[in-house]
Design a protein around this nucleic acid. Structure first.
Lengths: 201, 201
DNA sequence: TACATAATGACACAGGGTGTCATAAGGTGG
DNA sequence: CCACCTTATGACACCCTGTGTCATTATGTA
């Protein structure tokens, strides 16, 4: 939800209240992308269809990709929170991977509508420009995963590799789930984490 | 080498020969990026400095990022070739990972100048826009790695996760090597592959 | 009612990336 | 040596993304 920084972070009581519903705008964008294609739909098209100005659109979504990736933010955030909280308990052995698995799976729970998410991810899978953005969009999760691993006793360098592999594999898991019709993404995520190992143990 | 498709692929004997040296242009771009910064340097700046037109610049480099990533192509290609050739021999057990390790390391050998590569990678590390592009630039390697794994008997889905993790980890290895001053990237790559495992074995 | 606050959008601008097209430059065949 | 042909080259025009500025408007509060 890209509006978080504007609405929930600063719940002012003064000044003109917002009239634009970011979620509604994102939904419109998603529909237009589905109808006309991603690059065939300009930001101006979306703004017009939403009945707002192009500049206002950019105020809520910092980029075109954000219209898609914004919807994944709750998943990433939920997953990150699990990593943060789990970090406290000292994982002695290789159940470090259990923590990662748990975090990956935790994101699934916060999704209200899996069908919409599947549409979003399919769009991402179809456009290299959007898939590339996973590197940036998942950066916070990478950082939190690294911190978790280091706090669990994994060496700095190995933690970096493990994080990168973790992010890569779980993203691929979401892609594979989205490409099919299975309702539950969890098995995909679990299997993806299965290709990881902690060298020390 | 971005000019491959134009020069080596079609070694014509007729028509006007090319007067632009892509490598020289890329070197100029790299210098300008180092001097003024990546986003502060426009394609027009590079074209002007290289003494060519902006359109001609785009003829040799399909995007600004290609000016940087193009130099990594030999590494990716060499790594991919190893995967292709290794695929024939049937890796019975978990020495499938040996093949991946070998492929990752193979790229190092083809680099003429590690210092230049380090500069390139540092530039990539500093700019999310460039780092993101790893997803696209490494796509061919991903495909070849997947084919290798499948031919080695790894299941389709697991192969996908393993590939994604492999690409992610080795890219991170290059990043970590570039951030430091060690002359040899190999140990980084080996350690990165060390976080992978094949679930079956 | 007046004020403060903040959303809104009109305008302008730089830069990336693409298509078209006329021109230049060099080989090859007569 | 000349005509031709092939290809590189770049000038021009264009669309879109993303950003900054700034006047305007709408709303809640004093």
């Amino acid at each position: 939800m890209p509006s978080d920084a504007l609405t929930t972070a600063v719940p002012r009581s003064t000044g003109r209240p917002a009239t634009i519903d970011p979620d509604a705008v994102a939904a419109i964008a998603l529909r237009l992308f589905a109808e006309r294609g991603y690059e065939q739909t300009s930001m101006e098209d979306i703004a017009r269809e939403a009945g707002i100005g192009r500049k206002s659109l950019y105020r809520y979504f910092s980029s075109k990709a954000e219209l898609i990736w914004g919807g994944m933010e709750p998943v990433i955030e939920a997953s990150g929170r699990v990593l943060d909280s789990t970090g406290a308990r000292d994982a002695s052995d290789s159940d470090v991977l259990d923590g990662l698995r748990e975090a990956a799976v935790a994101g699934v729970a916060v999704l209200p509508d899996l069908a919409v998410t599947r549409g979003r991810l399919r769009l991402i899978a179809e456009h290299a420009e959007l898939a590339s953005r996973s590197y940036e969009s998942l950066a916070p999760q990478r950082d939190r995963a690294r911190a978790y691993l280091v706090s669990a006793g994994v060496g700095e360098d190995v933690a970096g590799y493990l994080c990168a592999a973790f992010i890569g594999a779980t993203f691929e898991a979401w892609m594979q789930w989205a490409a099919g019709t299975d309702p539950d993404p969890v098995p995909y995520l679990v299997e993806a984490v299965g290709v990881l190992r902690v060298p020390g143990s």
